[in-house]
Design a protein around this nucleic acid. Structure first.
Lengths: 243, 243
DNA sequence: ATAAGGCATGACGTAAGGGGAGAGTCAAGG
DNA sequence: CCTTGACTCTCCCCTTACGTCATGCCTTAT
């Protein structure tokens, strides 16, 4: 667990920015100390890395949050888009270099504004953004998120984590045990009720997300116990297959 | 003469941005129509091109204004710096591409924040900025500009242009005629009084600027008449050489 | 135990415009 | 001559992503 200053030193992100990211819900600390100090873990760093990658491409922080929390989020697809965008911007820079060099040698007469044209990049950004936010599930999620305060959100998150932690007690039984299936059912209802309509497909996606070895896995295991996320994923898989 | 809309179409800069650049004195229209419409000419476009080049590198608009108006401004030096900076940024992008690709194939375990590090670029920017603003003449100029309103500035600019236009009447005589030398003297006093201490060296630099074929030349000739800027430059040269 | 430094919250400031209101202006057609 | 629609002007408030204090608690080393 690292304090703000340590994270800042490791990542180059200012302490103030971390405060900001916390406030807008983009990067919440993994825990709070007794005194209310923000404490971050490796999962936080991982998420921060992705945040910086999107930020580097001028994505609005709100969008980054939306993307990272999207039920459709797929790291590899996101990275592929990032790479494509970065390459577009590199091309853009090449054009600018050529322009500057052109002015340098040809003098004032060389008037040209195409190199400043960002429409291609902007279009790709818009397209990428749409590809993340255009699913009905995401729109629903966004909409519901509107009218909630930060406390509401925290409480809802707690509720979700509590449900997930419940898988720990069952993790030595079969993934399709009645208790496990019941818990998955409650999970699905909870998500549908508070976040977005949780279809079997979405549920299956969540299962993969939970067991994927990333920050979700860590957070869930930190709450329930080692293996919780993995069992939850298997229980979800079994549940969906038996629907 | 083009209206805001036309400039916007040609350059991709929004109308609102042109308003903004006008308000902060970064790019004033070449003229105003009867009704107060902003009218731009080729010299405006030329200046706008440089503005965009600096803006692309995240220079604050205030700094861009300072640089373009600096008595030490040298387009070629500026362009060389721009090219260097653009290349640094391209390197930065290359690093980011490598990082994204690395995460893509190596998964979550690949935690690294160096590619986000901008200190090298920031340092070069700071250095470049200093190289423009660190001359005593520039500092003086900046300081005097502080306490003036937009009207003050416009009036002072008018006064300067009036003086320069005065060279037109003398342009068929010798560059070192007594009238020409007197006018250069008044020009020097005017600049020293209202802008910055106009040493002979600075004066010579201004002469080159006026006759360089850029926006200065055009503006001066538009005010005085064809050949005004060129004669002014020659008169200044003669004046300085005879000091 | 006392000072120094880290941390928190809150309020305000900033840059570079965006967006819209309300009003004047210009060119073309009826 | 008048109207209409497209432009333009000047306020003025809004936004994003933080920077910058101010003020006060927390923690740690001496």
């Amino acid at each position: 667990m690292m304090t703000v200053r340590e994270v800042s030193a490791k990542t180059g992100v200012s302490v103030r920015a971390l405060h900001h990211y916390d406030k807008i819900g983009l990067l919440k600390p993994a825990a709070l100390s007794e005194a209310g100090y923000r404490l971050y873990d490796l999962a936080s760093l991982e998420r921060l890395q992705l945040i910086l990658l999107f930020r580097e491409l001028q994505f609005p922080l709100k969008d980054i949050r939306g993307i990272l929390e999207s039920p459709a989020f797929d790291r590899n697809r996101a990275l592929d888009q990032q790479i494509r965008l970065l390459k577009l911007r590199r091309e853009h820079l090449d054009n600018l270099i050529a322009l500057a060099a052109g002015i340098r040698v040809m003098g004032v007469n060389h008037l040209s504004f195409e190199p400043f044209d960002m429409t291609k990049i902007d279009e790709y950004v818009a397209e990428a953004r749409k590809s993340w936010s255009d699913t009905p599930a995401y729109k629903e999620y966004e909409q519901r998120r509107e009218g909630r305060t930060r406390e509401d959100e925290a409480a809802l998150g707690e509720g979700l984590m509590d449900l997930l932690a419940g898988f720990y007690a069952l993790k030595d039984g079969p993934a399709d045990a009645p208790e496990a299936r019941a818990l998955v059912g409650r999970l699905q209802s909870y998500i549908t009720e508070h976040f977005y309509t949780c279809t079997p497909e979405v549920l299956r996606g969540l299962g993969h997300l939970y067991a994927g070895g990333g920050s979700f896995t860590e957070n869930i295991d930190a709450r329930g116990g080692e293996g919780t996320a993995d069992f939850a994923a298997r229980a979800i898989e079994a549940y969906v297959n038996l629907q």
